[in-house]
Amino acid sequence: MENLQVEDRLNLKAKKFLMWLFIIASFMMFAALTSGFIVYTEGNAERGIKVLLPKAFMYSSVIIILSSITAHMAYLAAKNLQLGKQKLYILLTILLGIAFFYSQFQAWQALYNSGAYFVNYNASQSFIYVFSGAHLIHVIVGLFFLIYALIGAIRNIPQVRNVFRMEVASIFWHFLDILWIYLYVFLLLNQ
């Protein structure tokens, strides 16, 4: 009861809602990019992805799904006041996030080697870089949220705020996960 009151005064509900809205906005950005891809590619034989998508994209997908699970574990730990576990899982998520980065760079490398350059007169291939690059920028933002939550847990901030930070970070991280799956499936379907 006490907790609930504090929460209200801090406007946490309204602030958490901001995160949902932000997710909608950035989803619109990717919706625009993917529709741009369709408008561009549609009905022209010279356009299209035309290369096999690198294996690394598959590894990335596995990594980010795993990281989503660890993020959720961290959130559960935070809710159950298991601070040590929470910190561990956040750290794991951050590490997986960095691994995801690495894997995406590998994928770019592979694309480059197979002749699908970013600067390309078939912009369908350039789009692959734009999708994954824009997603990576979001991942950076996600990492900041995680680090912020980690700092909170280390500093032992009040439980309401700790759970709040953790929740916001994990909502966003799940979004990154789903977003990547969406982009990957989109690319696979257009391969």
Binding site: L21, A25, S26, M29, A32, G36, A123, S126
Partner: peptide
């Protein structure tokens, strides 16, 4: 605004690539 402004960002990003990186969107 939330549903439409992000689309402008996408458009602008592609334009920036065309202007500065030599892509052909």
């Amino acid at each position: 605004g939330v549903l439409s402004f992000p689309v402008l960002v996408s458009a602008v990003v592609l334009l920036i690539f065309d202007r500065s990186f030599g892509t052909s969107f």
